[in-house]
């Protein structure tokens, strides 16, 4: 049964990319365990505004776990202690009366902090622009049923395509590696006949961009897979390695 709890939130405050940043601890009273984590932050912000202070800045949008906008490193976990969900789906019933909850931004060289808990994830867009697509123009494409695709392949492609681009994989990784994100897109398109035509070019271009943007080298710790809110498998990383190595050896 949901109760009201009193908690403290220890939040990272940083005024801008160049500011040094520090933690502030705020007490919050009578938070319903039925509220979501972000609603708890809404209440905190309401409280701060009423005290004439600046509210905590954090990214969020759809609040139903699909847009990938919300982030937050909560008590040692990207997206908090619950598995298979995003921060916006995390509820306060995961916390107890008297808890101090530490809330930090994603930390990685690839995701510089903009303000407080908000980070810049445009690096992911740049990787996508390097090759995360099938080169087709609008119109002039064959009938949708012209190429049958084995159901198993379509399902595996869908598993990979479920990635929401939130960056939890990078945030969880001690190497700041973006391999899970890149491998999900490369896998999706490598598994489908439409994407196979450009598979070599795509794997090389996306990996090159990922490296250029300062993401780390994957050492297969598997932390990304554990924290991924969409349970994307690291076997996609094996596939990316395969795709990339094949492409390089073919050159």
């Amino acid at each position: 049964m949901d109760k009201d709890i009193n908690i403290k939130v220890k939040v990272w405050r940083q005024n801008g990319p160049k500011d040094k940043g520090h933690f502030e601890t705020y007490p919050l009273e009578n938070i319903s365990q039925g509220s979501s984590f972000l609603e708890m932050l809404d209440i905190l912000n309401e409280q701060l505004i009423n005290e004439g202070k600046e509210p905590v800045v954090f990214d969020h949008d759809c609040r139903e776990g699909i847009c990938g906008m919300c982030s937050l490193y909560i008590n040692g976990h990207p997206h908090g202690p619950d598995q298979g969900i995003t921060t916006c789906q995390l509820h306060m019933r995961r916390f107890n009366d008297g808890d101090t909850i530490t809330v930090e931004p994603w930390r990685s060289a690839g995701f510089p902090i903009i303000k407080d808990l908000m980070v810049d994830r445009t690096a992911f867009d740049k990787i996508m622009q390097a090759g995360g697509y099938v080169s087709v123009n609008t119109g002039g494409v064959p009938d949708a049923n012209a190429i049958p695709i084995p159901r198993h392949d379509a399902e595996m492609a869908m598993d990979a395509a479920a990635c929401i681009g939130c960056g939890a994989c990078v945030a969880a990784c001690k190497n700041g590696s973006a391999m899970l994100f890149v491998s999900a897109k490369v896998s999706q398109l490598a598994l489908l006949p439409q994407g196979r035509v450009e598979r070599k070019q795509r794997a090389k271009a996306m990996v090159a961009k990922m490296d250029e943007l300062g993401f780390g080298n994957c050492t297969n710790t598997g932390a990304c897979e554990v924290e991924c809110p969409k349970n994307i498998s690291i076997t996609n990383i094996a596939r990316l390695n395969r795709e990339f190595l094949k492409a390089k050896f073919a050159d």
Partner: peptide, 22 residues
């Protein structure tokens, strides 16, 4: 990899379940 991790470290220790050796 240390560079890619960024200058600032998490204050709360990672609780992600991974193998110690990895």
């Amino acid at each position: 990899n240390r560079k890619a991790r960024g200058k600032d470290r998490y204050a709360s220790a990672s609780k992600t379940k991974t193998t110690w050796s990895s």
